[in-house]
């Protein structure tokens, strides 16, 4: 064990925070999706580290699935967003305010 688990967890927490920050602060739908991707990946890091700690493969499996799900997510999300961009010409989430 070179890197203690706590360090990995801290790293992943920081990454999670960055992801949240990105999703919350950038007024661009694409960047929000990216931020959320970062959040997913931060979880992946934690899983990998934990898999090392518990000496089993479940963490690793998780990561594989996360990659797959993230890919789905991007495809679905981007599809909707791009479609919306074509209709409205805007990536600004503030412009999507019809529903109230």
């Amino acid at each position: 064990m070179i890197v203690p688990l706590s360090h990995a967890l801290i790293l992943s927490a920081i990454l999670f925070g960055l992801g949240v920050f990105c999703a919350v602060s950038r007024r661009n739908l694409i960047m929000m999706v990216l931020g959320i991707e970062i959040m997913l990946n931060s979880a992946s890091i934690a899983f990998v580290a934990a898999a090392l700690r518990w000496q089993n493969l479940e963490g690793q499996t998780f990561v594989l699935f996360i990659l797959a799900v993230a890919a789905t997510e991007v495809s679905v999300g981007l599809a909707i967003i791009v479609y919306a961009f074509r209709r409205t010409g805007s990536f600004d989430p503030g412009n999507y305010n019809l529903l109230k």
Binding site: I36, A43, F47, A50, W54, G77
Partner: peptide, 21 residues
Amino acid sequence: YFLVGTFASGVMLFGMALLYS
């Protein structure tokens, strides 16, 4: 729906990671 949903699944996943680790 998508943004909140994926955000929530990000949170969930992070929680699962904590739980597992």
